[in-house]
């Protein structure tokens, strides 16, 4: 029990650390803070590849956070801020890439595969069912009677 509590505490502590992005920015409103959080979590750090700019300590991520903040303060919309960064760093900075001819496979590939799988499954099931229908697996009348008597023995059948 003690061990479990210790592990839990440790886990909680780690959780706290993981979310400790150092923000010294002051926001005019809570809504702006939320917008900022969402933006920095959706933007990818160009240097560190697999981190968003909210979590990264790379200098470039700090610069980009400062840019996002400055643009927010200027009153720019989310779309304007994202456009600003994409025009400099390309689609790479987006964790949510836009749907274009190049990203069609990325967006719809998994869905198409899943659909294909279901279609295949359906075909197989239907085929098996049809195959089973063709072969006669039923019992003859004699056999049916015998089965019934075996399953429901009547007192007259009992031979003591």
């Amino acid at each position: 029990m003690k061990r479990f509590a210790a592990a839990l505490l440790l886990g909680l502590a780690a959780l706290g650390v993981a979310h400790a992005a150092i923000d010294t920015f002051e926001f005019a409103s809570e809504a702006d803070r939320q917008r900022y959080r969402t933006l920095v979590e959706e933007l990818r750090c160009p240097k560190c590849q697999n981190q968003n700019i909210a979590d990264s300590d790379a200098p470039i991520a700090m610069d980009l956070r400062a840019q996002v903040y400055a643009k927010l303060e200027e009153g720019q919309s989310d779309a304007q801020i994202i456009d600003y960064l994409v025009s400099r760093y390309g689609d790479f900075v987006l964790y949510k890439p836009p749907v274009t001819a190049r990203t069609l496979l990325l967006w719809y590939g998994p869905g198409a595969l899943l659909l294909g799988g279901f279609v295949l499954l359906g075909v197989i099931v239907l085929r098996r069912r049809r195959a089973r229908g063709e072969v006669d697996v039923g019992l003859s009348q004699d056999e049916q009677d015998r089965l019934a008597s075996l399953l429901n023995p009547t007192p007259s059948d009992k031979k003591d």
Binding site: P46, K47, I60, G90
Partner: peptide, 12 residues
């Protein structure tokens, strides 16, 4: 201040 670098999309 890295402003031109930002406009150039420099990341390192």
């Amino acid at each position: 201040r890295g402003s031109l670098g930002l406009d150039l999309g420099v990341y390192g």
